[in-house]
């Protein structure tokens, strides 16, 4: 299964879509295609119905959290110091905004092809978390997209029944996100260290035991 060939076939048949081939450096060789949210539905329908591809089996839908990363790099800049132009090292901080990613693994039952890996990314992790739902194309995405909504917070537009799957309805957080903090709880360990010891110290200073 040649991913470049599939990419060009999709680009030829779905006008306007923007695909990016993301190489996978691991020995598994499973490279993926990054879709843009606007044309994801059209690409999905084409992949499912095209006679040469027939990717009718959506096996796995995964959510991934990429938190915002701050990179600081030292840059040499020409600056005026005491009237003389000199090269000074300056620390520049760049923030790559975080995003939530949804990955689809597709297989073809008829042609015994796969896995074809598709990816979609949200704009950021707070306000811009909408992505089109591919449940109308592959029914197997129904429960898995609900789970991603529950645990990551991605809102899927066009999903027939988007509500929490695993956590209770009154739950507010999205627990699989990297910045989720567990509710505070007494922990007993025979040899406390790190986090448990820190929390035990905190409880002790706050008001002792019970």
């Amino acid at each position: 299964m040649n991913l470049e060939a599939i990419e060009s076939e999709i680009e030829a048949n779905v006008p306007g879509c923007r695909l990016v081939l993301i190489a996978n450096p691991s020995p598994s060789g499973q490279h993926s295609l990054l879709l843009d949210a606007g044309h994801a539905m059209a690409v999905a329908i084409y992949l499912r119905d095209a006679a040469s591809l027939r990717f009718d089996f959506c096996s796995n839908v995964t959510g991934i959290d990429w938190p915002a990363k701050e990179l600081s790099e030292k840059v040499k800049v020409k600056k005026l110091v005491d009237g003389v132009e000199q090269e000074v090292e300056e620390v520049r901080k760049t923030t790559t905004p975080g995003s939530l990613e949804v990955v689809y693994h597709l297989f073809s039952i008829e042609k015994k092809l796969g896995p074809l890996v598709l990816r979609m990314s949200t704009g950021d992790r707070d306000a811009n978390v909408h992505l089109p739902s591919l449940t109308p194309v592959w029914r197997s995405a129904e429960l898995q997209e609900r789970e991603i909504f529950d645990l990551f917070g991605v809102v899927f537009d066009g999903h027939p029944d988007l509500r929490r799957l695993l956590m209770w309805d009154e739950f507010q957080d999205h627990p699989m996100r990297r910045d989720y903090v567990d509710p505070d709880d007494y922990e007993y360990e025979p040899t406390a260290h790190d986090e448990v010891l820190r929390r035990a110290n905190q409880h002790l200073s706050e008001g002792g035991g019970r």
């Binding site: 007494y186 922990e187 007993y188 360990e189 406390a192 448990v196 010891l197 035990a200 110290n201 002790l204 035991g209 019970r210």
Partner: peptide, 8 residues
């Protein structure tokens, strides 16, 4: 239930 304490 009473929480067992970690003693420092």
């Amino acid at each position: 239930w009473k929480a067992p304490l970690v003693q420092i």
